[in-house]
Amino acid sequence: MLPKITNCSWADLATVSSLKYRAARSLEAPDGRLFHSVAAVQCALSCIELMGEISEPNVDLLEVLSTSNQIDPGEAILLALTAADPNGYFLTGDKRALKAVSQLDIAPSFAGRMIIVEQILWKCLQVKGHGWLLENVCPFKSIDKTISIILGSRCDADAMHVCQGFSSYVSQVVQLHNPSLLVEYGPYEL
């Protein structure tokens, strides 16, 4: 689904190599943080196998990104690679890291190049529909507070409310930096 929504092939997508090893360790006993089920681990490993390789990050950019305690080392690597590649994009679910990046002097180099999970799920709502989103995300909604709120306490929010929730949240993130760090994925309508 990710290649379809991002208009990229799996070979165009990449992640830090440590994720493959973390997933493999979670295969028998999911870690409960990143991987909540064996099925999630298996899906992640299948996707990682299809992804391209990442290069070495620019050390100077990595140093700048590492000054924030809100950006973890893996994110710093991916962000440094994104900043150095004019065609690179960064997909994240970490709102703290996004806010931290928006406050760095190098933030303009990420303008229009970041994608948040809520944008992906908003596109899934459009492409796959409300029922698919609830069926596939609700069992794991507790992983992310924002998504849990958008889907409703009993995962009973109707399609219009879900769309409005995503719209409201994405609008807040857009306002973190001018120009916006987020890729424009509009229009988001049902």
Rank of each mutant, 00 (worst) to 15 (best):
M1I: 07
I5L: 11
N7M: 15
S9P: 07
D12S: 14
L13W: 11
L13K: 08
T15V: 15
T15S: 12
V16F: 12
K20L: 09
A24N: 15
A24E: 15
D31K: 06
D31T: 07
R33W: 12
S37C: 08
V38M: 13
C43G: 12
S46T: 15
C47F: 14
I54R: 13
V59A: 12
V59Q: 13
D60N: 09
L65S: 02
T67K: 14
T67A: 06
T67V: 10
Q70E: 14
P73T: 04
L78G: 02
A80C: 13
L81Y: 00
L81T: 03
T82M: 05
A83T: 05
D85Q: 13
P86Y: 10
N87I: 10
N87Y: 08
G88N: 09
Y89L: 07
G93R: 05
R96A: 14
K99W: 06
V101N: 01
P108N: 09
P108L: 11
G112F: 03
V117M: 12
Q119H: 04
L121Q: 04
V127L: 11
K128T: 07
L134P: 02
C138W: 05
P139W: 12
S142Y: 10
D144R: 06
I150R: 00
G152K: 04
S153L: 10
A157M: 05
A159L: 02
C163Q: 08
Q164V: 13
G165D: 02
S168G: 09
Q172R: 10
V173E: 00
V173Q: 02
Q175R: 10
H177N: 01
L181Q: 05
P187G: 05
L190M: 09
